[in-house]
Design a protein around this nucleic acid. Sequence first.
DNA 1: ATTACATAGATGCGCAATGAATATAAGTCA
DNA 2: TGACTTATATTCATTGCGCATCTATGTAAT
Lengths: 241, 241
Amino acid sequence: MTEADFLDDYDPAAFERPSVTVDLVLLGLHEGRPTALLVKRGQHPFAGQWALPGGFVGIDEGIDEAARRILHDKAGIRSAHLEQLYTFGSVKRDPRMRIISVAYLGLLANDAFESALKETPTLLPAGIDVPWQGEKGGPVEVQSPGHEPLTLAFDHADILAMAILRLRGKLDYSDVGFAWLPKHFTLRQLQDVHEAILGISLNKPAFRRRMLDKGWIEGTGERETGASFRPAELYRYKPQN
Amino acid sequence: MTEADFLDDYDPAAFERPSVTVDLVLLGLHEGRPTALLVKRGQHPFAGQWALPGGFVGIDEGIDEAARRILHDKAGIRSAHLEQLYTFGSVKRDPRMRIISVAYLGLLANDAFESALKETPTLLPAGIDVPWQGEKGGPVEVQSPGHEPLTLAFDHADILAMAILRLRGKLDYSDVGFAWLPKHFTLRQLQDVHEAILGISLNKPAFRRRMLDKGWIEGTGERETGASFRPAELYRYKPQN
DNA sequence: ATTACATAGATGCGCAATGAATATAAGTCA
DNA sequence: TGACTTATATTCATTGCGCATCTATGTAAT
């Protein structure tokens, strides 16, 4: 333990320190599937390729704080459902220098997603194809709005895959399923969100019962408008249980 | 995007960088409950208090790699079930300087746990009391082998709580429940592990059915020895599904 | 040898959650 | 008015689980 104690008390200024960044997986629901906002890299390395929005963590800034700042600076979004995803720290993940990146998952409701695209036209909404079922895991495929396949810079494809895994895992015991919906929504909209995240279609009556029994939603008495058929009731998210 | 692009390409050497450490939550099953291995701090801050074993991440060392090195250097353990837990990066979490810590969860089988205690006598096996049910979350209480309450240094109590949450969450869809068991084990031992992690007692026939139906274990045909009653069959973990 | 005892392991029953099929309700539009 | 479309309700079979109970199998005392 002498060596350990020594290291423990050693002045870390003597060590070379890695840079720490935050990368954001900003997901919305676009054309029926999970869609990430990407930025185009202008410089080496991976010039011309697409990457997750990110930035360095300031020395006087917590990492959650840095994630919120980057969310605002790079996507023009003031608030979103942000949670830490995973930290990627391989030595070679950035060829220039040692960078450890803390990935965050941000879920954008449709209005936030659209306004981000409008205010920051350099953002690309990239559809995500998940070629595996359930929580098996594995690489995901990303496509441009014109459905051209995209190659992501760095290890950002791994980060995206991790985000999908997290989303699927938390769907039925947390409130992530509501992050993509407006305040008032129909049961069909909620089911569409679940089906997009899980990549499978769900049984409608069972889904309805489950949502209502869990006590997570409550009816508002209002109904949707503009439908050319029977209008659905609008529900709202009811926190806690 | 001009500012963002500027930051993106800026030479990070011009920024002051945080130190990055790895902290290990090394858990074993001791006297029927989850037990963490702690080290005593000799110096300010939190001198005399107990902390998770940890150390700095080297500039040419991946973070997983650093976790394995620290596992070996500080606990004398060559291999264990190690997985990344969460990254703690508040500005004030270490009063001396800015330190971002990547926490790892390590599960030690009984022989590894005992040999670590033997080879590194400065390690303290601290029992963990979880005063909440399920995955509600909240602070946990830590006790010395003499059942005296302990106060942990830094935010290490939060890290421990996160480890318990992770463990409970992954118990029934991953192999973490087997990490504390030897190669061959009885169903009762497996159930004891699950009950210790969940903090509740489980129904025996239902547990047995579930484990066998999931296809995660298979009988060896052998039986335990030394019992003064009917010996149980020994099972082994069967990977994949 | 026989019996008590403790735990392993198996069986049957009822409740709750779920998938699936079907029926009914409520709007628009020709 | 009636066709059409989707929302919402109802019913039924299956499955998983909690629970109680029963049987099996070893040791150890008598």
